[in-house]
């Protein structure tokens, strides 16, 4: 199982980032909490559909859990279709966020928790 955390910098000590589609990068951990990979967020500079692009990149990397702050409705739909579990309520750093998740204190995001604010051209949830 691979767990991705939206981050402001490339490592576990970097601050975790609220925004899914616009974060600097994703830190990807294995189940034991070892860093497997740090990927630049392609969505960061995307003119349109940032969240969709970020979601696509995580789906390609076979991530099964995403820990973040806000996910737009389109990215949410994409992650769910790919069977990715999304949790919100990040802590200060990436490592702390992972710890918070492991202790079961993060909120599972439902489709309705995808706030339109996080997506840019927020659409209806049914897309």
């Amino acid at each position: 199982m691979r767990i991705a955390v939206s981050a402001a910098g490339p490592g576990p000590e970097a601050p975790a980032e609220e925004r899914f589609g616009r974060c600097a990068c994703f830190v990807i951990f294995d189940e034991q909490g070892n860093v497997e990979e740090v990927v630049d967020n392609a969505g960061k500079t995307a003119p349109e559909g940032a969240g969709v692009l970020s979601a696509q990149s995580l789906l390609r990397r076979k991530v099964s859990v995403v820990l973040t702050g806000r996910v737009g409705p389109k990215a949410m739909r994409a992650l769910q279709a790919g069977g990715v579990a999304v949790y919100t309520g990040i802590a200060g750093t990436v490592a702390e966020t992972l710890a918070k998740y492991k202790s079961g204190r993060m909120q599972p995001a439902t489709p309705s928790a995808g706030s339109p604010g996080a997506g840019r051209r927020a659409g209806r949830r049914d897309g």
Binding site: L53, G83, G127
Partner: peptide, 15 residues
Amino acid sequence: NALLVAGDSVITFPE
């Protein structure tokens, strides 16, 4: 970014 592949489905975002 109006399309995305998620496993064995393609999701479209007409908006």
